[in-house]
Design a binder for these strands. Structure first.
Length: 511
DNA sequence: TAGAATGAAAC
DNA sequence: GTTTCATTCTA
């Protein structure tokens, strides 16, 4: 039930509870607290809160801390062999219904002549779509539409989204009822035709015109986006979560991240972020969100504090987020022509197969294509392969002579020759082990601890990190454990030999 | 290039 | 039970 009224934009506070009939026990509360006190004091504080309460999540109901790790959603489980939920029950009077099956679920109903895409076509279609949508030449990427005076209408514009969140291009002559104006200007159109659904856009029914529930679409195929109350909402793995928390409400300059801290809320780690909109009248914006929440950052693209968790959970590859990052609302001019190569670089670590008919595979393929094209184009393009995302967690250290092999996975450090890393890199399908929980923790905090203890040797920092790790509570470790497990499972699936040990001379060498 | 931490998986 | 290797970076 969407308890938030349709006049939420006028109301200072708004609470949503979103349920799905696929997971009837899954309830997400979207709490929007707006406290604008601008009585001449230049003081205003806006708090956005997005909490998910899921049966499998630690924060659900009784805050059960005995969540099994096996409850983790699997990356590939959502899209390939399950028909997307036909009905997302949003409430008694708010729902949207799938008019027809999206293209990639056709194998569940071959008799439907409207299913225009085959399974492999689904993959190709995604790849093609991704290439088209994210290329600098794409009209979508070149769209300069940006209207900050009307948040609802801005957000309800497909062209205002970054490519990851945009619906697939719709042939306008397929359906006269779905005109450009429907997308650009009107918040919602009911009873859309099937042709729209073939494009991944779902019709909305039983909605009042005031509900501001816009189109839904599903790209990447693991992630379902829709517009709810002027926000981009993402449906992934049986969960709704809010994407790009209302950044469009805050000026054309974006929001600069000025502080972040993790805290435990009802047994679940959450991030508390503070943004500076850059304008005095807006004050600071404090946001509480999940650790894997993605933000679109200027010159970096999609970013989150836990990129690997974000991609596993939501299928969105991310750079690592840092203080000072400028988060942009979807459709911001600075977000439109960004080179996504940095995002693709994130996936150099993995080689996905066509069986992974997910956004991850698509992006992995795109990364491979990019590498291949760059290597064919000459060796001077090493730098071109790097995006503006200079973060080492984002840009792969793999040098171009290694990445010229499309099957090569990032292995070892960026040593150029003579090391074991190079040797291992020459063998195809060789990959690095995924980091365990402690490694993820250490990687995240090593820099911080190094600054905290200037002059300390890195080995001493390791000791401190280990000490800190041992003292951490299970709840604090949970996110790292989950992330490590997710990474390991994915790696195990893609590269089962990843943990193979080298044969040592003193070991079981046989002559 | 060793080493310092932890943990998962292979031996 | 032991060994390897994920990350990071200084000595």
């Amino acid at each position: 039930m969407a308890t938030g009224s349709s006049d939420a934009l006028e109301h200072p506070n708004m609470v949503w509870e979103v349920k799905t009939n696929q997971m009837p026990n899954a309830v997400q509360k979207l709490l929007l607290l707006v406290d604008k006190r601008t009585s001449g004091m230049n003081e205003s504080l806006e708090l956005l809160k997005c909490n998910e309460n899921l049966p499998s999540s630690p924060g659900y109901a009784s805050c059960d801390e005995h969540m099994e790790l096996d409850d983790l959603p699997e990356l590939q489980a959502v899209q390939t062999d399950s028909t997307p939920p036909a009905l997302f029950q949003l409430g008694a009077d708010v729902s949207h219904q799938e008019c027809s099956r999206p293209s990639w679920s056709q194998h569940t109903s071959n008799s439907n002549p409207e299913n225009a895409y085959s399974c492999e076509n689904g993959v190709n279609w995604l790849t093609e779509l991704a290439n088209i949508a994210t290329s600098p030449q794409s009209p979508l990427m070149q769209c300069a539409f940006y209207n900050r005076s009307s948040p609802v209408h801005i957000i309800a514009t497909s062209k205002s989204l970054h490519s990851y969140a945009r619906p697939p291009p719709v042939s306008s002559n397929n359906d006269p009822n779905f005109s450009k104006n429907d997308v650009d200007e009107t918040p919602v159109r009911h009873e859309r035709a099937n042709s729209e659904s073939e494009s991944g856009i779902f019709c909305m029914s039983s909605l009042s015109d005031d509900d501001d529930l816009g189109w839904c679409h599903s790209w990447p195929s693991t992630v379902w986006h829709c517009f709810l109350k002027g926000k981009i909402t993402c449906f992934s793995g049986g969960k709704f979560f809010e994407l790009c928390v209302c950044l469009q409400d805050y000026g054309s300059n974006g929001l600069k991240l000025i502080s972040h801290e993790e805290s435990i809320s009802c047994g679940e780690s959450v991030l508390k972020l503070t943004f500076d909109p850059g304008t005095v009248e807006d004050g600071l914006l404090t946001v509480e969100c999940r650790l894997d929440h993605p933000f679109y950052v200027k010159n970096k693209g999609w970013s989150s504090f836990y990129p690997s968790l974000t991609v596993v959970q939501h299928g969105i590859p991310c750079c690592e987020m840092h203080l000072g990052d400028l988060c942009l609302p979807p459709g911001h001019p600075d977000a439109i022509n960004f080179d996504d190569s940095g995002v693709f670089d994130t996936f150099k670590s993995y080689d996905f197969t066509p069986m992974d008919s997910s956004a991850v595979y698509v992006l992995s393929s795109m990364a491979r294509q990019r590498r291949a094209s760059l290597s064919c184009g000459g060796s001077n393009n090493q730098d071109a392969e790097r995006s503006e995302c200079s973060n080492k967690n984002c840009a792969s250290p793999a040098s171009s002579h290694l990445s010229s092999n499309p099957l090569y996975s990032k292995a070892g450090k960026s040593h150029s020759s003579g090391t074991a890393s190079t040797v291992s890199a020459t063998s195809p399908n060789k990959c690095k082990r995924p980091m365990n929980a402690f490694m993820l923790f250490a990687k995240k905090y090593r820099v911080e601890y190094t600054q905290m203890y200037p002059g300390k040797d890195n080995r001493a920092i390791s000791v401190i990190l280990g000490d800190r790790w041992k003292k951490m509570k299970n709840e604090e470790r949970r996110m790292y454990t989950l992330e490590a497990k997710a990474l390991a499972e994915e790696q195990k699936r893609l590269n089962p030999d990843c943990w193979k040990r080298k044969r040592t001379n003193s070991g079981s060498q046989q002559h």
